[in-house]
Write a protein that binds this DNA or RNA. Structure first.
Lengths: 204, 204
DNA sequence: CGTGACTGAGTGGCTATTCATTCATAAGAA
DNA sequence: TTCTTATGAATGAATAGCCACTCAGTCACG
């Protein structure tokens, strides 16, 4: 067995083993929690030796970072692309909410890492907050502000607060979905949230 | 120096050292995170020896549990008491939201433990979820249902989902407040949340 | 052969928990 | 009051176990 290489690359192509380790880590973190997960567990879940993990990642912590960075990047890129097609701010927010819950609903393990493991320390929270969450929140906020200018949302509302409310509501849907024993589809909750939310912020 | 004893008690009064350790733990957990906190740190912060911690708590984990249990108990008791005085469901929800944010806003360290450290593992989440969070969510839900029966809230809404939305919004206010560098009062956010929320769920 | 990806046993550092010992105070005796 | 003994809260050094990370060696391939 050998790892794939791209032509003209002087380093191992990052896709093969690296990807396997990342996927394994998501599963292991989701099951045991970040702090209770051993690097050895991740390695064996990925079908590689302990040491191999360190050929692709500097530390256990970097694995968690990579999971977050990659997923967030994907999500935001996918989001922006879809939003370009839409002009109505209400419809944009609906799409954001739907994408949010669809993405988490599609991979329970990833959702656990996002909803639970990434929240487990202020250190992570602050780092991640700086990176992705803040950008995401501000995407919601600016969309809302568009709507205010367009006259479809109540102009006296504080857009920052509104963004947090919507985000918080969606976030709670996701967390509850993870913790619930009962299995149901997450994505459809988006409409219920939006129904109430839009009713609350619509200009009358 | 001696530990306080209640009259006719054959065991050390639990308030003195135990309380000191609990308070110290809140500070230490808030600063370093649960998993990065050493029992020795808690002991020294509390001004006792390492071993003393184990005279009052079975394990490090039990300390975290105790923090949660005691705070949650206090909060729910205080909440129920205030709610008894109110009949209008809208006003009840407003009071719940206010109490929620006032309590967290009053003690930043405790808030960090609640918003961040307690979320750090599915294990904790599930245990705590079973105990206190679920009860809290259902308090919100049943209050909302009262309002539906009284005809002040839209009857077609799913009360469970509505409860999660309100909780999620408040929860996000608290988390953001903790992570924010800027200092502002948390409690007043309750009104902004309720404004939008009630607008969203009011029967027209 | 040469290369370098891969291996996995071993190391070092760390820390939750234990327990033999100390000592302040209470209780009893004179 | 003063001395003696008993009690158990408090201590903190020592233990025991864990686990992230390293590195000397293997091996498949070109």
């Amino acid at each position: 067995m050998r790892s794939a290489r791209s032509i003209n690359s002087d380093r191992p192509v990052v896709t093969d083993k690296r990807e396997a380790i990342l996927r394994a880590a998501i599963r292991v973190f989701a099951h045991n929690g970040y702090f209770n997960s051993k690097v050895a567990d991740i390695a064996s879940e990925a079908g590689v030796a302990d040491g191999t993990v360190y050929l692709y990642f500097k530390s256990k912590e970097e694995i968690l970072h990579s999971i977050f960075d990659r997923s967030m990047e994907e999500a935001i890129a996918a989001g922006r692309k879809q939003l370009d097609q839409i002009t109505d701010p209400r419809e944009k927010l609906r799409r954001i909410a739907l994408l949010h819950l669809e993405r988490l609903g599609a991979d329970r393990n990833l959702a656990v890492v996002f909803q639970v493991e990434l929240r487990g320390s202020t250190k992570f929270m602050e780092e991640f907050s700086a990176a992705g969450f803040a950008e995401y929140l501000s995407l919601i906020r600016s969309t809302f502000e568009e709507g205010q200018h367009a006259g479809v949302f109540r102009p006296e509302l504080n857009a920052k607060v509104v963004a947090k409310i919507l985000f918080g509501a969606l976030d709670e849907m996701a967390t509850n979905w993870i913790l619930s024993k009962r299995r149901y589809k997450l994505a459809p909750m988006a409409d219920q949230v939006l129904d109430i939310f839009l009713n609350g912020v619509n200009a009358r």
